[in-house]
């Protein structure tokens, strides 16, 4: 009887918290799983990688040689970049110029792709509010834009990918056009194409994104770079988003819309960078 009462209490608390404290439950669930997911990540990066290395020793040796050369090259490039940064800082100091955006990059490992349902195109990364991440922060990799942070807990963040149908990014074409100014548009996530049956091979491959509301007078060439315009106040200006495939008039004929292939391979994301707006050591 006593145990039944306890079970009923736990049940009521579980359902009640789910209904009245939804965001808290989400955060609590993510934080509960974080240690296990982090342990899985650690296992993958230390034990599994070493096991694979033992199994393919010859390949590892050649890869090691190649990586050593790359490290040497990068060290040289880093030295050059540091010298340039010093120069920029000195010039800024001389002109009394302050950067418009104080920000820093936070590297974050991908913990989960799609959560438990895979209903949305999102990833969970292993950095959260305790590391300075805030809702709305942009997420990128060296290839281009990945998405933006939509939910944050203490140690994890949910990132909505630009390929999700709910994603919108203010973009422009990278080609400067004479007497046209800048060609801007809004990039919509792909997802499943409405009313169309994609081939079975396309089930996992990301559908092309749609760049809508562009000027109808300009016919952009395929492979034109699509970059963020900075007008949405989420992504800073000039980040590579994707490449234009083809374009046509929209059904009303009032504007032009184009298919855009994302610059980033969303399926192979492993490490991403969050642009935190809080500022940091490398902000200036």
């Amino acid at each position: 009887m006593k145990q039944s009462k306890l079970l009923i209490w736990i049940l009521v608390i579980s359902v009640g918290s789910l209904i009245f404290w939804q965001s808290g439950v989400r955060k609590f669930a993510r934080e509960s799983l974080y240690p296990f997911e982090n342990a899985g990540l650690w296992f993958e990066r230390t034990v599994a990688v070493r096991c694979r290395a033992v199994l393919s020793r010859a390949q590892t040796a050649s890869e090691n040689q190649m990586l050593k050369r790359e490290v040497a090259l990068l060290q040289m490039a880093l030295g050059d970049a540091e010298a340039r940064q010093q120069e920029v800082l000195q010039l800024r100091k001389a002109l009394d110029f302050k950067p418009s955006v104080k920000s820093r990059w936070i590297a974050a490992s991908v913990l989960s792709r799609g959560g438990t349902s895979a209903a949305w195109q999102n990833i969970r990364v292993a950095k959260g509010s305790s590391h300075g991440v805030r809702k709305g922060d942009p997420v990128v990799v060296p290839d281009g834009v990945v998405g933006r942070v939509v939910e944050v807990s203490a140690h994890t963040s949910e990132v909505l990918l630009i390929s999700d149908p709910n994603s919108r990014v203010a973009c422009e074409l990278d080609t400067p056009v004479a007497d046209m100014g800048v060609v801007r548009g809004i990039l919509y996530g792909g997802g499943a194409r409405p009313g169309v049956d994609p081939e079975l091979t396309l089930l996992y491959v990301v559908e092309p994104l749609r760049l809508r509301y562009m000027s109808r007078d300009f016919n952009p060439a395929p492979r034109t770079r699509v970059i963020s315009s900075g007008l949405g106040h989420t992504f800073p200006k000039g980040l590579l988003v994707g490449y234009l495939l083809d374009s046509s008039f929209d059904p009303n004929g009032l504007s032009r819309e184009a298919s855009v292939v994302p610059a980033v391979d969303m399926a192979s994301l492993d490490l991403v960078f969050i642009l935190s707006a809080r500022g940091g050591s490398n902000a200036e």
């Binding site: 049940l11 359902v15 789910l18 669930a29 799609g114 438990t116 349902s117 209903a119 999102n122």
Partner: peptide
């Protein structure tokens, strides 16, 4: 209790409505 916990975790971690 098991189905409530399993459901809560699926909804919370999958971004599904409560």
């Amino acid at each position: 209790l098991a189905l409530v916990w399993a459901g809560v975790l699926t909804d919370a971690l999958g971004g599904l409505p409560a």
